[in-house]
Each structure stands twice: as C-alpha cells, then as structure tokens.
Design a protein around this nucleic acid. Structure first.
Length: 263
DNA sequence: ATGGTTGTGCGACAA
C-alpha cells in the first residue's frame, strides 16, 4: 500500500498537476492539504475517473484537507475531537481520518497543522493548543495497537538538519523550541518518522518558498511528515520525496512525500 | 530592514 501526503496549495489551480503526478506515482492513498475549497466545489470527477474515492473536509478559501483512495475506505472522521466537553470544536478544516482496507486495515490521518506565525501571538497559541489536541487524539489511536499513519503538513522543522539555512528560521513558528518540543512529545509516544528512518542524511526537503528564489537556491525545509505507529513501522518497505515535482510549471510550494507499506 | 510570490475569489489574507 503506497500512501502519500501532498500540500497541493489550491486544488482548483492544480487539478491537472495532481492528475499528472497520480498517473506517474500511482499511490493507493493520498492525503491532501490546503485544498482551499468547500466540499461542494472540489473537482471530484477527474479523480473518480482514475478510480479514486474522494473524501473532503474543506472550508472557504483557506485550509482544507482531503483523502483520495483507490482502496475501500471505512469510518471517515472529520475534525480533531475536543479534549473535553469544555473545549471548542475544531473550527478550521485541518484533520481527516479514514481506515483504508488493503491486505491489512490501516488507519490514515491527514493533517494540516497550523502555521502559527507570527510568534508569539494568538496564532502561535492556536498552533500549540492544536498540537496538544493532536497529542491526545494520537494517544487514543495508538491504544488500538493497529497500523496507523499520521501524515500531512506539520508546519514543524524537526531539527536543524531539516533546513538548508536553519538560522533563517530561529524566530519562526515552524522552528521555535516549543514547536519542536511538541512534535517530539508526539514522536515520543512511539511513532517513527518514515523519511528519517529510511534516510539518515541531512538535506532532504519537502517545501521551498515561492519567494526569494528558494527553489533555485535549494533553500528548503522538511515539514511534511509521515509518522508511523509501531505496527505500521513494522510494515515499512520504502519512503521517498518526489522533489522533481517542485521544478514543474506552476507547482505547489510543497512536494509529495510517500511511503510503501506491506499492507 | 525590506520585499519578494502565490491561491482564493474579488478584498484582503494566509502562507
């Protein structure tokens, strides 16, 4: 089972780019972020023609996540559950889960973690609260002791080696110590960072800013991650970053990241 | 220090 995550940065502007990549990469499951579309306006038909089921959780203009799958899906859940009845509902469209029925059943969560800039401020507070909520949800899911994949745009640079110019990010919400500590707490629950597990060397990026010639200078960061439960990590066969997609016409600022599971 | 780019939807705003 090949599972990918791809921040598409506007599905309407990049429907053809996504179709092209699907045809060549042939993933079974794709978690999309920043679809920037309400559910009714998502261009489902071309993906359904390729054999993909389409489950969306969108909102107007911003954010929005989706799962495309050519394997059957069960138990689709939208929104991150509140930690208690006193908690606000998760009002931004940033989380979708489904069980993918392959050779094995795999629970797949597609997430678009808040950017959090500028920090400090209310947006950064929202990011940290969201990460705390994700931590609680992950604890619950890990309790099932089943293959689980948490994938998406985490908007967190895990370590200095995950940025071409780490000094540029010192005061950024993507690299602040609190952001990295919150990601580490999540990983410490027992998750495996698939790209790191398969490739220890630095310099593997998933995002290059549209501005200041970041792509041309390879000034990238690694912020799109696939984190695996122990049961999923046991099934890990391969993982990769489709970097070449960033060099095409009118690309997203992110590229697809994927794993192959024996499932 | 500032400005640089892009998508959505048509004015900002988020990134």
């Amino acid at each position: 089972m090949k599972i990918a995550t791809y921040n598409i940065n506007g599905i309407k502007a990049r429907t053809q780019a996504l179709l092209d990549w699907l045809a060549e990469a042939s993933p079974d499951v794709v978690c999309l972020q920043e679809i920037k579309s309400v559910d009714e306006a998502f261009p489902r038909e071309p993906f359904e023609r390729l054999g993909y089921r389409v489950e969306t959780h969108g909102m107007k203009a911003f954010n929005g996540v989706a799962i495309l799958s050519r394997l059957p899906l069960e138990d689709v859940t939208r929104r991150l559950p509140p930690r208690s009845d006193a908690d606000d509902p998760d009002e931004q469209a940033r989380w979708i889960e489904a069980t993918v029925l392959g050779k094995r059943a795999v629970r797949v969560c597609g997430l678009y973690l808040p950017n959090g800039n500028p920090a400090p401020g209310p947006k950064y507070d929202y990011k940290l609260a969201w990460m705390d909520r994700m931590l609680a949800r992950t604890r619950t899911l890990l309790g099932q002791e089943e293959p689980l994949v948490l994938c998406g745009d985490y908007n967190v640079i895990p370590q200095a080696e995950d940025a071409a110019n780490p000094k540029d990010w010192i005061e950024d919400a993507l690299f602040l110590p609190q952001s990295r500590a919150a990601l580490q707490r999540l990983i410490n629950l027992g998750l495996t960072d698939a790209i790191r597990a398969r490739n220890q060397s630095p310099g593997h990026y998933t995002f290059w800013d549209f501005q200041r010639g970041a792509w041309e200078r390879n000034n990238g960061i690694r912020i799109d991650h696939l984190l695996l439960s122990p049961q999923a990590a046991d099934l890990l066969v391969d993982a990769g970053i489709d970097k070449a997609v960033r060099g095409r016409d009118k690309p997203s600022d992110h590229v697809p990241v994927w794993i192959e599971l024996d499932a």
